[in-house]
Design a protein around this nucleic acid. Structure first.
Lengths: 192, 192
DNA sequence: AGATGGACATACTAATTGGTATGTGCAAGA
DNA sequence: TCTTGCACATACCAATTAGTATGTCCATCT
């Protein structure tokens, strides 16, 4: 027997990625999975709890797992950040570009609407922000940067440019725009 | 008599800003306005058409009107871009930061879901992108930049960092994060 | 004055949504 | 072997959603 709960989680993650949380119809996802309401509500008390579980068990780990590696990156910290960005790019095909960044999508949709979502999404962003800020701080401490920067402030900028690249790619419906924005971010980082 | 159609448009714009297009309940907005379904469906054939009208008549003009001014900006083109960014910042209070950029929100929600939305949103982004790219091209032509850049590519980066600043501010639920990201973008632009 | 049409109000509705209540098969432990 | 409880299936349901169908008031044109 396959893991029914995990299947429900992953199918709903896909639906959330495309339609947003509010746009997810549990009924639809259920019938696509070939299961019934009984199975769904056996594992998740409500649609909202399902949404939280998708963030906690799929989206969160995916992002925090990547950025936490920055702390152990050997070499120029800025190149560590670039490595993370390139990793994200490599996981973003033409299709993924159209659907955008799952984290960015969810932040923009749910942050003002539900406190449960907001705290979870903020926690993920905090991990990413912390990792970038620490990397920049290491670079500053080692005197590796030409310009003086405030690591925490600059880390927000890096996050913004990265998330924004997805928005640009999504609106232009072309990975080329996403790539251009990301390339310029990388160039900017390397010029620090 | 006030302009009922405009009232419907503006109340729904506010609802879209907070709840997203899918989250808008025409019934709710109607009752808040103190009008009835008759009035609503007299002016708008459907909820989708209402959404298009909000983009065409409120969101679009607001953004294109601002960025088109760049073409007539006297002085260093980069300072013109900074002026636009500061204008956007000045219109973004603590509350506006929580709700995010209406354009960014709509792109992330609706671009993959509806072609009518997508083409409209892309058209707005194209205007903004074109204005920034032309400003950068002028700066290049006049030899005002230290670094050589590709104006079109860099314009995507500027747009990305700007839109992304809203995402960051929204997730952190703090204008300080938004301001930090925007400040670093401005510093980066001025260092070009 | 009578007809026309725009600007709404009122009342109704089919489909959908997000569930709940209840039943069943089966594996594991007492 | 009996029972307990997990893992689902089936059937039902109240509220909501996005409308439609129809009526009315009033200004304007003929």
């Amino acid at each position: 027997m396959v893991d029914t709960r995990r299947n429900i989680l992953e199918k709903n993650y896909e639906a959330m990625h495309r339609h947003g949380f509010q746009g997810v119809r549990p009924d639809k996802v259920i019938s696509e999975l070939g299961i019934t309401k009984g199975a769904f509500y056996h594992y998740f008390p409500s649609k909202l709890d399902l949404g939280y579980a998708v963030v906690d068990e799929i989206i969160g780990p995916r992002y925090t797992g990547l950025w936490r590696q920055l702390d152990h990156y050997q070499g120029h910290p800025v190149e560590g950040i670039v490595w993370c960005l390139e990793y994200i790019r490599s996981g973003t095909g033409e299709q993924g570009c159209l659907l955008g960044c799952p984290l960015n999508n969810l932040i923009n949709e749910m942050a003002p609407l539900d406190e449960g979502f907001r705290t979870r999404l903020q926690a993920i962003m905090d991990v990413m922000h912390g990792a970038i800020a620490r990397a920049l701080q290491r670079a500053v401490d080692k005197g590796l940067l030409n310009r003086t920067i405030d690591p925490k402030s600059y880390a927000y900028f890096v996050l913004a440019a990265m998330e924004g690249s997805f928005s640009v790619g999504k609106s232009m419906q072309h990975k080329a725009a996403f790539d251009a924005a990301l390339d310029e971010l990388i160039t900017t980082l390397r010029a620090l």
